[in-house]
Write a protein that binds this DNA or RNA. Structure first.
Lengths: 203, 203
DNA sequence: AATGTTTTGTGACATTTGTCATTTTGTGTC
DNA sequence: GACACAAAATGACAAATGTCACAAAACATT
């Protein structure tokens, strides 16, 4: 019997997942948490039922799934962690792996894949969404730190001048950065560049 | 027996919801669609099983849940629609109501509320998430249909020329539309205008 | 100090965008 | 037809943006 804790801030997904997984004969959802802190509080309380596996989203209020995974690694390393998140962001994957997570899945895969992953991890295996493996190996972020900051602001509709002021640089420099970002991303303008970079998880 | 179609672009939520709702004795999920277009295609095909109620997300690729609701109101008004979305944006609610939807729920409510809403709507009732009732009086969308379409494309980083081609209009006209949208929204440029409009739920 | 390297800035230019007054076109009504 | 009215287009202009070659400044390292 796999004793499972789920951390997910979207209540609907949390409750449906819990109900669904509880239907499996070899899975028992011992707790549902709305964020990482709630999950950690439950885990660290000795009065509660023991947990074998934690299934967690990343972006949650109070404590993210990454932070939860780090805390578990440090304090309860016998508990396995599976990350379940919306977007494939190389930076997240790297930090998750460093935190010793055993699984990293995307929310666009169907529920049976999730169930298979839970069983595999419970048996000592590791699972990483195939979409991520490609991204992780192949392309790393080609953008410089400044280009990223400029793109973020451009995405909000800020003008060159405003971006320059925010980053304490000249407007000419900003235009150079954005132009450079455009050519790196094969974009026709700053907006398309920002869109591409965001879609790749580089912002 | 309530014959249900679900449209939701997040595969995990789609499949868990479908499985879960199918467990109810009075609900049968006849189709799962990844976007509005897929849902409409299914509904309009006479070879498929009939649908009593459509449960749909709003922000989906190809065709949004709002557009789906509008198409259903026009072509199959006997089908009830429940919107299920993350965002509590006044503009969405208003347009949804105009499209004759019978329910508008947020994804942070648990699954039993959803089930209750489905049954209530199937029995001729209406359900609106209480969080939204406050915003209901909000300002109406000041943008014209063409302005919205142009803004959507501008948000993707398309150039004036590309937008013009897509909408079968002149580039000058597009610039007029975008300029008009900027002044209506007090935006300094098309990107900021698109951001504001999106945040208000007008795109 | 001399050096290479990176970051930041400048200037010039073509293109795109934002704004606005005005005109044309399409549509329906009387 | 004549008329009103909205949608679409035009032309002109200022402003912002994209591109590029190159210069200056900041910084390490020797």
């Amino acid at each position: 019997m796999i004793r499972l804790l789920i951390a997910e801030d979207q209540a609907l997904l949390l409750s449906t997942l819990a109900t669904l997984l509880n239907l499996e004969t070899d899975v028992h959802v011992v707790h549902q948490a709305a964020n990482g802190k709630e999950a950690l509080d439950y885990i660290m309380d000795e009065n509660n039922d023991a947990v074998d596996l934690v299934l967690t989203d990343i972006e949650m209020p109070h404590m993210t799934g990454i932070e939860l995974a780090q805390a578990i690694q440090k304090q309860k390393p016998e508990i396995n962690v599976i990350i379940l998140t919306t977007f494939s962001r190389a930076g997240y994957l790297r930090r998750a792996m460093d935190a010793g997570v055993k699984g990293y899945l995307l929310k666009d895969s169907p529920s049976d894949e999730l169930l298979a992953a839970i069983r595999k991890v419970a048996n000592g295996g590791k699972v990483i969404a195939p979409e991520l493996l490609q991204d992780a190996w192949m392309k790393q972020d080609p953008l410089t730190d400044k280009e990223i900051k400029a793109l973020r602001l451009a995405k909000e509709g800020k003008s060159t001048e405003q971006i320059a002021k925010t980053l304490h640089l000249t407007s000419g420099t900003i235009r150079n950065y954005l132009s450079s970002a455009c050519s790196k991303l094969n974009a026709k303008n700053r907006v398309e560049a920002a869109r591409i970079a965001h879609q790749k998880g580089w912002l």
